[in-house]
Simulated assay, not measured.
Amino acid sequence: MTTRRFFNEELQQLKLEVEGLAEDTKNVLSTSVDALYNSDLKTAQRIIDEDHVYNEKEQHINDSALIMIAKQQPVASDLRRLIAAIKISSDLERMADHGKNIAKATLFLGDDHPISVHPTIRKMMENAVSMVDIATKGYHNEDISFAKLLAEKDDKVDELYGQVTKDLLELTANNPDQIQYIMQTAYTARYIERFADHLTNIGESILYLVKGVSYDLNE
C-alpha cells in the first residue's frame, strides 16, 4: 500500500469518527430532553455516567489528527481536514456536555416536581437535532451550502429560546415559591441554545475546510 493511499484511508477513518461523535451528541440531546419531560431519573443518571465516553472519543480524534500531522506533514486541503476534525470534535464534546447538564437538571427536579416543562423546549431540541444532521452532511460532503443553513436554523432556535425565557420569567413572577424548579427549565433552554451555537461553530469549520478562510456565521 502506498503512503498516500494509507494516508487517505486514515483521513477517511478520522472523518467517520467525527461523524460518529456527531451522532452521539444528537442522541444525548434528544434522550436528555425526553428524560426531562418524562422525569426519567434513571436515564438522566445514565447520560451523566456515560459522559466520559464522549470525552475519550474527542481525545482519540485529536490524538489521531495530531499524529497524522506530525508523521505526514500535510499541506493545503489535507491539513485543513485535520484541523477541522480537531475543531469540530471539540465542539461536539461540548455539545454532549450540554446534554449532560440537561440530565443534571432532570435529577434536580426529581420525579415529583410541581411544574410542567415548557413545550417549546422540545421544539428547540428538534431544531437543534436537525442542525446536527445538516452539519454532518455538510462536513461529509465538504459542502458550504449546508453551513449556511446552520445559521438560519440557529436563528430559529434563538427565537424559540426568547419565547421560552419570556414565558418563564412571567411564570416566576406569578409563582415565586417555584422559582428553583422554573429556573432549572430555563437552564435547560439555555443549554439547547448553546448546543445550537456550537453547531454554527461547526458550520464555520466547514467553511474553513472548503474555502481556507475563517468566517463568522453569527454576523
Score class of each variant (00 low, 15 high):
Ile144Arg: 10
Arg190Trp: 01
Asp167Lys: 09
Gly162His: 11
Pro176Ser: 06
Thr188Asn: 10
Lys153Gln: 15
Ala173Ile: 00
Lys123Asp: 12
Asp197Lys: 05
Gln163Cys: 02
Ala189Leu: 06
His140Gly: 03
Val157Asn: 06
Val117Tyr: 05
Thr120Arg: 14
Thr165Asp: 08
Tyr161Asn: 15
Tyr161Ile: 00
Asp158Lys: 13
Gln180Trp: 06
Asp158Asn: 15
Tyr191Val: 04
Asp158Thr: 10
Met124Phe: 02
Lys137Phe: 07
Lys137Val: 03
Phe146Cys: 10
Lys156Arg: 14
Asn127Arg: 04
Leu168Ala: 03
Glu193Asp: 04
Leu168Met: 13
Ile144Ala: 07
Tyr191Ser: 10
Glu126Asp: 15
Arg190Lys: 15
Gln178Thr: 11
Gln178Ile: 02
Asn127Thr: 00
Glu142Tyr: 02
Lys148Tyr: 14
Gly162Cys: 02
Asn127Val: 01
His140Ile: 14
Thr120Ile: 02
His140Leu: 13
Asp154Phe: 05
Asp143Cys: 07
Phe146Glu: 07
Asp197Cys: 09
Ile179Met: 13
Gln180Ile: 04
Asp155Lys: 09
Thr136Asp: 04
Asp154Ala: 05
Asn127Trp: 06
Val132Leu: 10
Glu142Cys: 03
Lys123Glu: 13
Glu170His: 13
Glu142Arg: 10
Leu168Asp: 03
Lys156His: 13
Gly162Trp: 07
Leu168Asn: 07
Ala196Phe: 02
Pro119Met: 02
Val129Ile: 12
Val129Ala: 13
Val129Thr: 14
Leu149Gly: 01
Pro119Trp: 08
Tyr161Arg: 14
Gln180Tyr: 08
Ser145Gly: 02
Asp197Ser: 05
Gln163Ala: 05
Asp143Phe: 11
Glu159Gly: 03
Ala147Glu: 07
Tyr139Cys: 09
Leu149Gln: 12
Thr165Pro: 01
Ala135Trp: 14
Ile134Ala: 10
Thr188Gln: 10
His118Ser: 01
Leu169Asn: 09
Leu169Met: 12
Val129Asn: 03
Met183Leu: 15
Arg122Asp: 08
Glu126Pro: 00
Leu169Glu: 05
Val132Tyr: 10
Asp167Gly: 04
Leu171Val: 01
Pro176Glu: 01
Phe195Val: 06
Asp158Ala: 11
Val132Met: 12
Asn174Ser: 12
Val132Asp: 11
Ala128Lys: 06
Arg194Glu: 06
Thr136Trp: 08
Leu149Arg: 06
Ala189Val: 05
Glu170Ala: 13
Arg190Cys: 01
Thr188Phe: 10
Thr136His: 11
Gln184Glu: 14
Thr172Ser: 08
Lys137Ser: 14
Met125Gln: 15
Lys156Gly: 02
Ala196Glu: 07
Asn141Asp: 09
Thr188Glu: 09
Ile192Phe: 04
Lys137Cys: 06
Ser145His: 13
Ser130Gln: 15
Ala135Val: 12
Ile144Asn: 05
Tyr187Glu: 09
Met124Trp: 00
